[in-house]
């Protein structure tokens, strides 16, 4: 291997040869990428599903089973397929009794879109948990929306009427107020705005309290 590399006399190759070389390289690269994509896809999807399950169980205390549901324009129907904008998750206890909904929502944050999930009990009209699924808020400040346990705990028992508002830290008095994070007011208010928007969007769509969706294909 350590012999000197001989200098090849270079003739000008025709453009056909250049195009062929590029096409061949592109084809091989494509095949390799498809192979890797196919090989890693099951693991990647399993990871995502596990993350979502953990988040649902986190925002709805006491839930043991969950089911993906979809709003089809008239009511909630089981959604065995891909999750979209109209998907939410119903949580049930160990005996299969309906507890509440875990509702995904997203909206603009300080840097980029914040994706979150909140747990909602329709009968009590209360939010009982919030988890950030995806965000790029400033490290050390905005990322406290999920790193600061005190901020996350704001959403453990929160009234939704009237609308949730973020107030200066330590000044919350009413059950619909949360303490904003000092130095990350924009991120805190973004979380509140995202939840309020999702709430008014789902308000009319959810069935009347007491007639929660029956467990169907529970996981």
């Amino acid at each position: 291997m350590s012999t000197p590399v001989p200098v090849q006399p270079q003739r000008e190759p025709g453009s056909t040869r250049l195009v062929l070389a590029m096409a061949l390289a592109g084809l091989l690269a494509g095949i390799i990428i498809i192979g890797v994509y196919e090989a890693t896809l099951p693991t990647i999807e399993a990871n995502r599903a596990r993350e979502l399950r953990e988040a649902v169980f986190q925002v709805l205390p006491g839930v043991r089973k969950m089911q993906a549901l979809r709003y089809d324009g008239r009511g909630l129907v089981p959604n065995p397929g891909k999750a979209d904008d109209d998907t939410l998750y119903a949580g049930y206890d160990g005996a299969g009794r309906f507890i509440g909904y875990a509702i995904p929502a997203e909206g603009p944050g300080f840097q980029d879109t914040i994706k979150l999930l909140y747990g909602y009990l329709p009968r009590q009209r209360r939010i009982v948990g919030m988890a950030i699924l995806d965000s790029r808020e400033t490290p050390g400040l905005g990322d406290k929306i999920y790193k600061d346990a005190d901020f996350v705990a704001n959403f453990d028992d929160l009234a939704v009427d009237p609308e949730i508002v973020a107030v200066k830290k330590g000044t919350s008095t009413a059950p619909n107020q949360i303490d904003a994070i000092t130095g990350a007011t924009i991120s805190s208010k973004a979380v509140v705005r995202i939840i309020n928007r999702a709430r008014s969007r789902w308000e009319k769509r959810l069935p009347a309290p007491g007639s929660g969706p029956a467990p169907d294909r529970m996981e």
Binding site: M22, A29, I32, I33, V36, Y37, T40, I44
Partner: peptide, 13 residues
């Protein structure tokens, strides 16, 4: 092309 292929492999992995 070669570099991008390796990068994509690393990304998915």
């Amino acid at each position: 092309i070669i570099i991008a292929t390796f990068v994509t492999v690393a990304d998915y992995t």
